[in-house]
Amino acid sequence: MSEPNRKPKSSAALLQSRRNALRSYLGAYGFMAPAGVLVLIFFLIPVAIVLYLSVTNLASSNFTSDLAKMEFIGLKNYRTLFNDQFARKIFFNTIFYVLVTLSLFNVSLALIVSLLTTHIDRSAGFVFRALWILPRITSPVVYILIWKRMAAEAPFGILNQFNELLGNPTYNYVATNPWVFVVVVNGFIGVSFGMIIFTSAIESIPKDLLNASLVDGSSRMQRIRYVILPLIRWPLLFVVTYQTLSLLTSFVEIQLLTDGGPGLYRTEVWSLTAFHRALSNYFGNAQWGYGSAFAVLLVMIGVVLAVIYMRVFRFDELVAEPRVEAL
């Protein structure tokens, strides 16, 4: 433990060193405090409130903002939820939506766009990537309006105008293919995140390594497979994890595009249900308690998934011991 020829510390020196250690801890916690406060205010407290609301029958009819006056009904909301004939459909809708959007767009297309734009002229690549960021930075309402007008029924939508021009029948696209539009519309937004992460990861691979692969005899495709993809493994796993959770909780675009329709819950996803039940009930009766039960389950699914991802992808290997030592 201690070095052999070091003299035993005097008690004054010991006290001093403890004081120093305490001071450095205080410094560390001080720096962490702002982030901690944010997590507390915007995550832990809301989750606690939602958790509480989910065991009350708070609704428009018995509304009160006093937590103490809300009527406690135990797990009744959860029982109702599990017996809800549509909850099952909505659950599988959600899985379908997340998996398809994630695999086709948020990961695959993002990867393809970053690989393509890093293999062409730098400035051209930059322009293409800038274009792909547009869906992300456009306000959702405007963005969805653009899609809706594009796909609108004849004689308005440009797609149908082409159909008319070519003498083809016209369609009400969003109504006939709601899932295609839900996935594509969300996917186009989702591409930018992975694209930025993948591009910077690819560009940070040393040039020598990329040249070495070509000289060693690889084609450009082989270089992607054997060198580039393995080297961006962590960013890939990170994007899968982050985007799964992000898609699970996203609903604004779906709400604006189909509002869960057409028909009964055709494209309704879990987070949208929580919103519909709690805040936007068709019959004017907002069921905060029941909606909260949906939200709580979503949080639980999210946390469980996050833990599974972190275990399976071994993110702890990325975290190194701090190199800065406090004396």
């Binding site: 040393p206 040249n211 070495a212 000289v215």
Partner: peptide, 15 residues
Amino acid sequence: QPKDRNIGMVFQSYA
């Protein structure tokens, strides 16, 4: 193409 030149290369950074 580099792959068709049958060259071996050693880099400063080892690569």
